[in-house]
Design a binder for these strands. Structure first.
Length: 444
DNA sequence: AGCACA
């Protein structure tokens, strides 16, 4: 008895249904607005908004077929089209007889986001990159990643639904900033809905799940023993055991890279305990020690392949050292132990706590909302004109380029934020960092 | 401006 379903999908006269299909809706049309629209004609028993690839379609389901007919008939002969927020809405009978599954996910705000990473190389996006991206909006408690038919997905847990909502609003439909990914990785778009989860269960720290509230959670055996997907998941990464100590090699060192510059750059991801610099085959290398492996992982993921100065200068290459605790004999301009009190130490402030720089990114996220998110109507998300304009600003110190490499080391740490917001200056000697504005203007 | 999700 299936004659109705053989109707062509697009035609002017769908067979009547108590479900109406609406299109050309304004962005982020709410359920309330749909109810308002349908109320004059009958009882709206269900709605579904944000439907379709552009999320500008919706369904309204009436209690009675005659009510749906009344609405269609009215607007068929009305000189005034149906409108939501002044925008003309086109409606017709749906080819479905009822709205299924409204109000499960997608509409109910929660503290956990379901993130689908779209793009050819979505699977190359590491959990650490996701962590950085979402940390711009608040403390990320946990992340799990998994493969579904929908593709590569992640659940990202925040403290509360407000934080999750701010992240969702700012990031949904946007691409992961290119500077967070390797150069050869194709753009990855984030599609975000609310998850019904409230608290994710993370048993181990691994390549596919992290619990940032518990850094002492055991690391999954699969993430340690070499044959793991940790490396496989990140194509092109070497198999090397993770360590709390990073080995940094600096390529194309046109500017001086001082101990303090390194300290500032690496402190963005957590407290730096020790740094030792040395020459190897004429190139500068440094060992940077964090208190834990997780911090080193995040730092490495974020900094690998990036340049301390704009223009490709002082490119960082990071690997995990076999060291776990550096032996610093004395504090000088090449090596330092930041864990011991030393009046001669340059750094006037103790290193920031692990989450601190990331949490300051809330303001960057907000800024992002205002400026970058202003034109959601464009199907294609826009890249931030400069990485430092986006949420990652504070977390990606290497993007904060062109500070004067010869600035006295003692003045470096306390102005780190200013530096990180500086516009690029590819030519000539950049002005002293201390004159730089706190926020760089967003342009483009 | 043309039909979702599990």
């Amino acid at each position: 008895m299936a004659s109705v379903s053989s109707q062509p999908q697009f035609r002017y006269t769908q067979p009547p249904s108590k479900v109406l299909h609406l299109r050309n809706l304004p962005w982020e049309c709410t359920e309330e607005e749909l109810i308002e629209l349908g109320k004059p004609f009958g009882k709206v028993v269900n709605t579904k908004c944000n439907v379709g690839a552009n999320r500008n379609q919706a369904f309204i389901e009436f209690a009675d077929l005659n009510q749906a007919i009344a609405m269609i008939s009215y607007y068929a002969s009305s000189s005034e089209p149906a409108q939501v927020r002044g925008k003309t809405v086109y409606l017709q009978y749906s080819n479905r007889q009822e709205i299924v599954n409204n109000k499960t996910t997608a509409d109910i705000a929660g503290n956990v986001l379901l993130v689908t990473i779209e793009g050819q190389d979505a699977r190359l996006v590491s959990i650490d990159v996701l962590h950085l991206v979402f940390s711009a909006f608040g403390f990320v408690h946990k992340i799990t990643t998994f493969e579904k038919t929908a593709g590569f997905q992640a659940l990202v847990q925040f403290s509360d639904s407000e934080t999750a909502t701010s992240a969702k609003n700012a990031l949904d439909g946007r691409i992961i900033p290119r500077y967070l990914l390797s150069d050869n990785v194709a753009p990855c778009t984030l599609k975000i809905t609310y998850s019904a989860h409230t608290d994710l269960s993370v048993k181990f720290q691994s390549h596919r799940s992290r619990d940032y509230t518990n850094p002492y959670l055991p690391v999954a055996p699969s993430a340690i023993d070499g044959s793991n997907q940790f490396s496989l998941g990140l194509d092109g990464k070497k198999l090397e055991p993770e360590s709390n100590v990073l080995l940094a090699s600096i390529e194309n060192m046109q500017y001086a890279v001082t101990l303090d510059v390194l300290h500032m750059v690496f402190s963005a991801f957590g407290p730096v305990q020790k740094i030792a610099m040395f020459d190897k085959n004429g190139a500068l290398q440094a060992l940077i020690q964090y208190p834990d492996v997780q911090t080193a992982i995040v730092s490495k993921e974020a900094l690998e392949g990036h340049c301390i100065y704009d223009g490709g200068f002082c490119k960082l290459h990071l690997s995990y050292s076999r060291h776990t605790d550096l032996s610093i004999k004395l504090n000088n301009d090449r090596s330092r132990d930041y864990t011991i009190a030393n009046p001669a130490m340059v750094n006037p402030q103790p290193p920031a706590l692990g989450q601190q720089p990331i949490q300051t990114m809330g303001q960057a996220g907000h800024q992002y909302n205002v400026t970058q998110y202003a034109a959601p109507g464009l199907g294609q998300p826009m890249m931030p004109p400069q990485p430092s304009a986006g949420w990652g600003a504070s977390a990606i110190p290497v993007q904060m380029t062109n500070h004067n490499p010869y600035v006295p080391p003692a003045s470096m740490p306390q102005m780190s934020h200013g530096m990180m917001q500086m516009p690029p200056g590819q030519s000539g000697v950049p002005p002293p960092a201390s004159t730089m504005p706190y926020f760089r203007p967003n342009h483009m």
